[in-house]
Design a protein around this nucleic acid. Structure first.
Length: 260
DNA sequence: AACTACATCAACCGCCCCCGC
DNA sequence: GGCGGGGGCGGTTGATGTAGT
């Protein structure tokens, strides 16, 4: 890097740290309308004081509608162990075998849980359990297209509810507004359909714009408020978005939400 | 109840790869 | 073929939550 390439953004003019609900909404609505052809210019176009890379990370890891939230199932954990044995620290490669899971999430799970577990196993001179071996064939070579597979796991509302709630991880598949029934959205073809590129009509655009405007108005998330709201207030606002507005719409009624 | 240590995970940083010019 | 820019990846950090004393 001698000679120095230009930094991806002006570090003095970008906001760092946890994302606020208002920023999330801005990013989601912008990507819904325009997609993400250029991450570097996206923050400026979307009116975000963020680095393009930060936007990309936020979208990929948390805001994408197909991101699976909640605890990893034992099957997923075993898959990660096996895939790590095969690929090493190639987290994106491992993630490609686990639909809905991100490399960052997998990396975290490995570093916090699975690494220790495998070390313990190795110390005890044990091979992974027989159940693990039986899972090997079912999980190791998962096609990257999740549509072509059986669901690798079923996320239940209870699973998700067990997660510590953080104000920065909220536009997610959290159907807390629903009953305690499990959320088998992966089996729902409409869920996967919404991930496919679709023709965007003017009517769709209008609906999204209206939806975002309604949200911002209802929650008083105007630009002016962005500057003045305290973090606590933002968290409260975000709980409101998550519990009252997003949850009933997403993912059970993706068509209500947007354009995918 | 207060304090400390440990665990978790979202986010940042910097390097590398790929692709277009 | 070389160069530059953008995107992607992996390592690391720091804030926050939780358990233990």
């Amino acid at each position: 890097m001698a000679g120095g390439r230009s930094p991806c953004c002006d570090k003095t003019k970008v906001k760092k740290g946890p994302w606020s609900p208002a920023e999330d909404i801005r990013l989601v609505s912008f990507i819904q309308k325009h997609g993400h052809t250029n991450w570097r210019s996206l923050p400026k176009q979307a009116g975000l004081l963020r680095c393009g890379k930060s936007c990309r990370l936020r979208w990929i890891n948390y805001l994408r509608p197909d991101v699976k939230r909640g605890n990893f199932t034992p099957e997923e954990e075993q898959s990660i162990i096996h895939l790590h044995a095969t690929f090493g620290n190639k987290w994106s490669k491992i993630a490609s075998h686990l639909p809905g899971r991100t490399d960052n999430e997998i990396k975290n799970v490995w570093n916090t849980h699975l690494k220790k577990r495998t070390l313990l196993m190795n110390n005890k001179n044990q091979t992974p359990s027989s159940s693990l071996a039986s899972n090997e064939h079912t999980n190791q070579e998962k096609p990257s297209n999740p549509k072509a597979t059986q669901p690798i796991a079923t996320i239940s509302v209870e699973d998700i509810d067990q997660q510590p709630s953080t104000p920065t991880s909220t536009i997610s598949c959290n159907s807390s507004g629903q009953d305690k029934a499990s959320c088998n959205y992966e089996e729902d073809e409409s869920f996967w359909n919404m991930l496919e590129p679709q023709l965007v009509t003017d009517h769709d655009m209008l609906e999204v714009e209206n939806w975002v405007r309604l949200l911002e108005k209802e929650l008083e998330l105007t630009d002016q408020d962005d500057q003045t709201k305290t973090m606590g207030e933002e968290q409260a606002v975000w709980c409101k978005i998550s519990d009252q507005i997003l949850s009933p719409l997403w993912p059970t009624s993706p068509t209500n939400f947007g354009l995918w």
